[in-house]
Design a protein around this nucleic acid. Structure first.
Lengths: 170, 170
DNA sequence: TCCAATATTTTGCGTTGTCAACCATTGTTA
DNA sequence: TAACAATGGTTGACAACGCAAAATATTGGA
């Protein structure tokens, strides 16, 4: 091979690796999540609700925190609501808004799913690396994240201040 | 906060970071790729074809190398063929098989797209890190990749041995 | 007060990709 | 060589999601 072609650029290989890892993990995770009746997006929505003090977040905040559009969030919440895992509640202070609220059943479901999920994460990701490697990996990723996705924590503050819609124990 | 909840587990945060980075990058890349009339999957298919000596790969190998199913590859190649960027060619040695072959136009297109793409990769990923950070990141990712996706290099050998269907310069 | 501009969510439609069923070809075994 | 499993690819039906427009609520002037 005389000349180095552009399509073999090292930087391309570097992102390629990231993409492949993401794919591989996604696939590994999907199998077990399916056994809990959840997709990755559904788990994430419920997880973000569950992390909130009152287990509620506004639709648009969910959209901002995930990769979904508001339209996508509407649809995921539709499914979760049909399954009885999430409820919608209107927002007193701004009647344009809608809270998505985790139900008891939803909290149970996400707790069980996450317990299994963490096993998988450990098996296929964090557990494969030494603590030093994991730290280095995480730090590097954080740098990139802060640049490409600085807005990923929208709405948490507002939701903490809001009056509880339901009171579910954690 | 008295007790540490399971849904705040550190390992969850670690994968979350990876997922967010992947999302953020995907979004950043998509805009410019769209200007070249390509989606990420289409670019990847063409890229993998372009990396092959004869710019050809079998449908099933493309499926193995990407996250797509064979059915998905059929559809991506359908689109690329309609756009004149890829052609199908029947396989002499196994008449069940089909080569996907990059056309001249396809090679031109992918070359142009990749040149721009690499700029983005550098701007939003590799360029954000010191060489040491990038090395550490890549090494860690490689370890994970080798475990979750060991089969990601299918078909390259076979394609190199195959007789050329077209001869396009690189 | 009334209206225009803005913000939040939902809906209609198109695109993309999966799954399962299918056909054609190849390899294997008796 | 006949039977049959395994492989490679495509297709129809369908689910998920994005985009843009619609529906609803809010806010800030004039």
């Amino acid at each position: 091979m005389a000349t180095k072609r552009i399509i073999d650029d090292d930087r391309l290989t570097a992102v390629g690796l990231l993409v492949e890892v993401h794919r591989g993990l996604t696939q590994k995770f999907a199998a077990r999540l399916a056994r809990h009746g959840l997709s990755e997006n559904e788990l994430e929505i419920m997880l973000r609700l569950g992390r909130t003090p009152n287990c509620q977040l506004r639709m648009s905040d969910l959209a901002a925190q995930t990769s979904l559009t508001t339209s996508g969030v509407t649809r995921v919440v539709d499914r979760l609501e049909r399954a009885g895992l999430v409820e919608r509640a209107s927002c007193d202070t701004d009647r344009r808004g809608t809270w998505a609220v985790l139900t008891e059943a939803g909290l149970d479901r996400v707790t069980a799913a996450v317990a299994d999920h963490i096993e998988d994460v450990d098996r296929w990701y964090t557990g494969l690396l030494t603590p030093e490697q994991l730290t280095a990996l995480t730090e590097a990723l954080r740098i990139v994240r802060d640049t490409v996705r600085p807005e990923a924590v929208a709405g948490v503050m507002e939701a903490e201040r809001a009056r509880p819609r339901r009171h579910v124990g954690v």
